[in-house]
Amino acid sequence: MHPPKTRHARRDVPLPHDVVSGLRAHHKATEWPGPEDVVFSSHAGTHLNVQNVRTRCLKPAAEEIGALWIGFHTFRHTCASLLFARGANAVQAQKWLGHHSPSFTLDTYVHLLTEDSPGALDLTFEAAAPTGGWACDAAEA
């Protein structure tokens, strides 16, 4: 197993409680349930080899469903798509994806953002908003 490429690559990704419970149950049921062991391992209990997973699992599954274009980065792209669709901003997506900067995330995934115009700003409403709408002190103007 190789260390992460950058310091941003090691990150926490929030998972639903039921997924964590399922992963813990799977881990306990393996031959190597030590605290440092990986959840999904080779038959020898070692880290999975990326090329083996690609050729033995991902490629056959993609062929079976007729989606030969699927690769590991498809999962990252799907994650970014789902994050932006649920309203995550560039900083939140950057942290999930392990990018070095939000601008890199935007450069890579800007095509996922909606091109619809948000409409005109109602400046009267914005100025009157009690939660930090902008205001100007006449003495400063």
Rank of each mutant, 00 (worst) to 15 (best):
P130D: 13
H111M: 05
G87Y: 09
S81G: 03
A62D: 01
P130M: 10
P60V: 15
G71I: 05
P118L: 07
H73Q: 09
P118Q: 08
F125N: 12
T114G: 04
W96T: 07
L68K: 11
F72S: 14
L121D: 11
L121A: 12
G87R: 09
A129E: 11
L58P: 01
L68T: 12
W96L: 03
G98I: 05
L112E: 02
P118A: 07
D116E: 10
V53L: 03
L123M: 09
L123I: 06
N89G: 04
E64V: 05
A120S: 14
A90C: 05
G133E: 06
S117D: 09
D107W: 01
D122Q: 13
T105V: 02
L82H: 07
P60S: 11
H73P: 02
R56M: 10
C136N: 13
A138T: 15
P118N: 08
D122S: 14
L113R: 15
A85W: 03
S103D: 14
S103F: 08
E140H: 15
A93I: 00
F84H: 05
N89A: 02
E64D: 07
E64L: 12
L68D: 12
A135I: 14
C79R: 02
P102A: 15
K95T: 07
R54N: 04
F84D: 03
L113D: 06
S81K: 08
H100R: 12
F84A: 07
E64G: 12
V91D: 14
A120T: 07
S81V: 01
H111C: 03
A120F: 10
Y109V: 01
K59G: 01
T55I: 07
E63W: 05
L112W: 03
S117G: 04
L113S: 09
F72Q: 13
A61L: 06
A62L: 02
E140N: 15
A88W: 09
Q92L: 10
F72K: 14
A127V: 14
S103N: 12
G119M: 08
V110S: 13
G133F: 02
V91R: 14
V110P: 00
F75Q: 04
H111V: 07
H111W: 06
L121I: 13
S101L: 02
I65W: 11
R56L: 13
L83P: 00
Q94G: 02
Q92E: 15
L113I: 14
H111N: 04
F84S: 04
R56A: 13
A85N: 02
L83I: 02
L83R: 01
P102M: 13
R86H: 10
S103M: 11
C57V: 12
D116V: 05
W96K: 00
L82C: 06
A139P: 02
I70K: 00
C79S: 03
L82E: 09
A138H: 15
A128C: 11
A135G: 13
A93L: 01
N89C: 04
A61F: 05
R54F: 04
T114M: 00
F125R: 14
A127I: 13
D122T: 12
G98R: 00
A88H: 09
V110D: 07
F104Y: 09
